[in-house]
Amino acid sequence: MTALVALARRDLHLAVASLGESLLGVIFFLIGLSLFPLGVGASPDVLARIGAGVIWVLALLAVLLTLERLYQGDADDGSLELLALSGAPLELVVAVKCAVHWATSGFLLVLVSPLLALLMGLGPAAIWALPLALALGTPTLTLIGSIGAALLVGSRRGSVLAALLVLPLYIPVLIFGVAAVDGVVLGLGGAAPFLILAAMALAALALAPFASAAALRLALE
């Protein structure tokens, strides 16, 4: 237990100490999104129609950008070995690392998303629907990404491979994430997509720590 607390504290300290790197995902998110009105034209109808999809695609990519720092640093400097020796199960170590990673990536996207909903002219309902959908969906992105990041520890060009490995697995989150926001924005209603996002988050929470820990054990050998 102490080991997990020490790990969470260190990772949070580290996220604050390397603030630029921590904010990389959210800055990418903002800049990427601001390009769309320039690219497709500032017609409010078009932006409102594509808004939810564009925001979700950028959220996927923003989380993907930050995945490399999840395990690679610890593998390079020997912290991973130390964590394996802590006596705490590696699965819980993974869960703690994912929690801190989400707090410094997905959670920041949730915080800025109401602004983005306004930017894309998604309408008043999106100001709560988009953050809610992202809050339910981004933990899944971190957890699935954790499997890819753990598998690619030690491989060169890991971030490119991670994109190939992880992005296809993000498709269900993308589909239901967009459906959830569009459902509210277009007035179709329905809680189903939100519930499916939550179900996927719970399933990922149950499975990803075991898969990631198994991959990390291989990396330690």
């Binding site: 102490t2 080991a3 504290r9 580290l14 100490a17 020796l85």
Partner: peptide, 19 residues
Amino acid sequence: SLKPLLSARHNAAFLAGVT
């Protein structure tokens, strides 16, 4: 097993806390 950005004390707290 040290993080270059953190102070020696924070690093030591991690080393001592984990083991």
